[in-house]
C-alpha cells in the first residue's frame, strides 16, 4: 500500500468518526481490516436508528469516483453539515449493515484499485 492510500484511509477514519459523533453516536467501535485487495471499515454502534442507517447507506452506496482520489479527498474529515457526506461516498465501494439484538455492525468496503493497473 502506498503512502497516498494510507493518507486516504486515515482521512476516511477521521471523517467517519466525525460523522458519527455529529449524529450523536459518541460510543462506537471502529475497526479496519486490510487485505491486498480491500480495506474494510467495521463500525459497531449501539441504538442506531434505521433512518440513520438508511441515510448513511444512501450517501455511501454510490459509484466510486477515481478523480476524487486525487482532488477532493483532502477535504475529508472537514464536513460542516450533517448531510455533507458526498466526498466519502466517492471513495467507498459499498456499505452494508447487520442489526443484532443490542448492536448494529456497519461494514464499509474500499477496494484497492488506486494503483495504476499497468
Amino acid at each position: 500500500m502506498n503512502k497516498q492510500e494510507v493518507k486516504i484511509l486515515t482521512k476516511i477514519i477521521r471523517e467517519l468518526s466525525f460523522f458519527l459523533m455529529l449524529h450523536g453516536h459518541k460510543d462506537f467501535i471502529l475497526e479496519t481490516k486490510n487485505t491486498p485487495k480491500t480495506t474494510q471499515f467495521l463500525i459497531t454502534l449501539h441504538d442506531a436508528k434505521e433512518s440513520f442507517l438508511k441515510h448513511m447507506q444512501e450517501k455511501l452506496n454510490r459509484e466510486r469516483e477515481m478523480e476524487v482520489e486525487t482532488y477532493g479527498w483532502e477535504l475529508l474529515g472537514d464536513i460542516d453539515e450533517h448531510s455533507d457526506f458526498a466526498i466519502l461516498g466517492s471513495l467507498i465501494d459499498s456499505m452494508d449493515y447487520t442489526q443484532h439484538a443490542t448492536k448494529t455492525v456497519v461494514t464499509l468496503v474500499r477496494k484497492n484499485r488506486y494503483l495504476d493497473e499497468s
Binding site: 502506498n2 497516498q4 478523480e67 486525487t70 482532488y71 477532493g72 494503483l115
Partner: peptide, 15 residues
C-alpha cells in the same frame, strides 16, 4: 506526473 506517481492519468481528470 501520473506516470512518476504510478497513478492512473484518468484519476487526475478534474485537474
Amino acid at each position: 506526473f501520473a506516470k512518476t506517481q504510478k497513478l492512473q492519468f484518468r484519476s487526475f481528470m478534474i485537474v
